[in-house]
Amino acid sequence: MIFRLTHSLSLILCLGVSSSTYAATENVWDIVAWDPPFDYQGQMRPLLYQPIEDASKPWHLCVTYPHLKDPYWLSVNYGMVEEVKRLGVNMTVLEAGGYPQLTTQIEQLKHCTDTASDVIIVGTVSFNGLSPSIRKIAQTTPVVAAVNDIENVGISAKAAVSWYTMGQKVGQYLAQRHPVKGANNAKVAWFPGPKESGWVKFIDDGFHDGIAGSGVQIVAVKWGDTGKEIQRNLLQEVLEESIDFDYIVGTALTADAAVSELLSRNLRGKIGIVSTYFTHNVFRGIKRGHILAAPTDSPVLQGRLAVDQAVRILEGKLTEPHLSPRILMIDQHNVGQFNTENSLAPASFWPTFEVISDSP
């Protein structure tokens, strides 16, 4: 079987717009299913999951991401590309350009339907901003939600973790370091991400609950899109106002920017850095001792799961509508033994916007 992979941005321009405990073994993924599906208040059920072996025909998957300027989404992209190639199906990928670009993503959904895609995978920029479009699309085309949380309107399956739990684990990590509330509370500058997105509210709520009752106090909050320059600017604003805090906690782009900002201000080692999710630079930062910790939700595996669910829907074989990798906190104690296969795309991988199968 031969595949042609395209890295061109032409599709976007035309619109204007893990740990070995849960690493994928041969044909089996150690993950969790949700009962009931799409409800993070429900129960997680451990599951040894066997992905579908192949596809009966070269289905066309249309995928839209919030952006590909964050290495996190690059890893999701890699997981999808690898699974699409393995199954022998076709994929077109669009990216909205950032979380403020709701109108662009709505246009991209329309593009997916106009090109007669068999199934649409959505990494949404907004929790409910796409709901009217998805409600209409779902009447003729199945929709799979990937990674970011989304209102349960019109979706047939979801491959995503609880971002509340991601935030909670980060909060609990700090709470364990500072369990006693008192005069010497640990002060945190908190950078949750873009307020309008489909995941930040949940990670913000989880973080607040994770530090509740502990000696951790939030003294500054800055919201903003997950671009490195945007996060760097927000960080510089905070550091210009005060350096009287003990931790910078926020997105992977915040953590990445903080490493160099603290060095340039002679603050490295005086202020700790914690990321709310896991990327290549965060991994390197933890290994080098510049970043304390981050949770991984295995974005590569989430990409694979979304493709698996999409093909299962088309083949009439969907049995688990809502699947998640396990969330694992990575810090300087376990980073040396951590298998990154399900969390990070290889260094050689570039954003891929089209996979075309030459199968009949």
Rank of each mutant, 00 (worst) to 15 (best):
P194L: 07
W29V: 01
T113Y: 00
V335I: 15
D297T: 04
F349E: 04
L305F: 07
V200M: 08
A257Y: 04
V180P: 00
A186E: 13
L292E: 15
W199Q: 08
S117M: 01
Y72P: 04
S275L: 07
W73N: 06
L15E: 12
N334L: 00
A189R: 12
I230K: 13
I137Q: 06
F127G: 11
K57S: 14
P299M: 06
L253H: 08
E83D: 10
G213M: 13
P321N: 08
S324Y: 10
G88E: 10
K222H: 14
K228E: 14
A159N: 05
R177S: 14
V238Y: 11
S75P: 08
I273G: 00
L15H: 07
E107Y: 02
V76H: 14
G213Q: 12
I243F: 04
H7Q: 12
R86T: 09
A258L: 07
V259R: 10
T113H: 02
V89R: 02
Y65K: 00
V307F: 04
Y277I: 10
C14M: 03
T25C: 05
P58D: 04
P66Q: 06
V147K: 01
G154D: 09
Q217Y: 11
M44V: 09
V89G: 05
T319S: 14
R177Y: 00
A294I: 11
S162Q: 09
G16L: 13
G289K: 02
P321L: 06
T6K: 01
P351E: 00
D118C: 08
K57N: 07
A116M: 01
L323Y: 05
S156F: 08
V219H: 13
Y49R: 10
V282P: 08
L87R: 01
T296W: 05
F245R: 14
D70K: 02
L328N: 04
E53D: 15
A33Q: 09
D246A: 11
I12E: 03
I271H: 07
N128A: 15
V144Q: 06
V335K: 00
Q332E: 02
A252W: 03
D70N: 15
F202E: 05
D70F: 09
K158N: 11
Y65R: 00
G198S: 10
T103F: 03
R4I: 11
F283W: 10
S75Q: 03
G123V: 09
G213Y: 10
T141H: 04
E53P: 03
G227L: 13
